[in-house]
Design a protein around this nucleic acid. Structure first.
Lengths: 222, 222
DNA sequence: AAATTCTTAGATGCATGCATTAAAACATTC
DNA sequence: GAATGTTTTAATGCATGCATCTAAGAATTT
């Protein structure tokens, strides 16, 4: 039997609070330390540390001596977040197109298979997971730790918008710079992967940018 | 007499530790909580919070149950950091060229005056300050909070390199994509500002990128 | 003497009590 | 009754003691 090391309290708190931010809390809602201490069954110190971390990451806002809350959603903020994400993710895949290995591309393809199957099964939760992992892996391929770290937080924010407006998978059409985009998310993913396989950095970048712009437009069109 | 509100301990700890990271500590050096508690004359809690924040920001590294330390310097890391900075700062000034107000440009010009005077006086410390503020203001002009937040941390990292190699102001020449760049930093700043005044986003972006690439090359050429 | 185990010193991780303060509830004045 | 000032409440901010763990050094074995 393995020794079964105890998970550090702060890390556990961070993990569970982050999950609750994604799935439970609403924009504008205050998070009381006291409540978390109760539900997490630990002392205030690790909870305070985890909250502090989330504030530093920009995932939570804070009012001194008052507490932390989920940032509110608005059009300008969404635009800024998606713009920043487009910049980072676009540059990342541009580099990825130059560096990616055969195995990495194969693995991405398998991941897309899994996502498409999830949609067939109407398991949208699983699709959302694979979608998220696809983007994470793409950006990691850039091999630039600074870009990845920074992208990760902004991506989280854009994902809040997509989830809130229930837009992770939809069969709509969007107009971007005069072009009508009628692809579903999985098709867009495939076309990004294809550009990656073709080792075409420019195409890779523009397809990613269109994909992200598409997500933003879907939010606005609701 | 004003009430003179007491500065929160955590904020003070953060501020002073950050300053020490810039001016005192060396790459690889461990930071003992105990020592900071002693020099800052406060309890462990706010110090731990401040360190936690610095780790989250990527300014410090951490080994669990051991402590925090200044990240080591190396060529690949420098390349990645400057690359990321170039991407963010380039995009930021591109937007800035579209949005900046007359007053904002005037203020930037005054700041450059101040920096040039500092060099005349051989006050390189003051020049470094104005240099830093110039870049901060430039990126803020993008009006994108996500880009600014994220850029700020990466800029800090690149600045560590520049300071470490004592390269904030030097009269060297560099070759970037075949072109010989022979400008000093202040001249480069002026040319960036000029592109901003001309409201030429593309020129603005490329000049900023060259300026940053120049900084990186100066580090490598030492 | 080298390698291994045991001990111990000293660091971080966590729990908890007190201090401070913001805002809600209440009382008072106009 | 509205506006203002006061009290109370309940949250975060901070200090500190104990728990846990890492790593360095001492003791032991080969």
């Amino acid at each position: 039997m393995a020794p079964a090391k105890k998970e550090p309290s702060e890390g556990k708190a961070y993990r569970l609070i982050l999950e609750a931010i994604r799935n439970t809390y609403q924009p504008g809602e205050f998070l009381l330390e006291k409540n978390m201490v109760a539900s997490l069954k630990m002392s205030r110190t690790p909870v305070a540390m985890a909250l502090n971390r989330l504030v530093t990451e920009g995932i939570l806002n804070k009012v001194p001596k008052k507490g932390c809350y989920i940032p509110n959603l608005n059009r300008d903020d969404a635009t800024a977040a998606f713009q920043a994400r487009k910049l980072l993710e676009g540059a990342a895949v541009k580099d990825a197109a130059k560096f990616s290995s055969c195995k990495e591309r194969k693995d991405l393809s398998k991941l897309l298979d899994k996502g498409e199957k999830a949609i067939e099964d109407k398991n949208y939760r699983l699709f959302a997971e694979t979608d998220e992992e696809f983007h994470h892996r793409l950006v990691k391929l850039s091999k630039n730790e600074y870009i990845y770290r920074t992208w990760r937080l902004i991506y989280f924010r854009t994902n809040i918008y997509s989830r809130f407006f229930d837009n992770l998978y939809y069969d709509t059409e969007t107009i971007i710079s005069g072009k009508i985009l009628k692809m579903k998310s999985p098709q867009q993913h495939r076309s990004i992967l294809q550009a990656l396989i073709d080792k075409d950095p420019i195409k890779c970048k523009s397809r990613v940018e269109e994909h992200i712009e598409h997500s933003l437009q879907m939010i606005f069109n609701r």
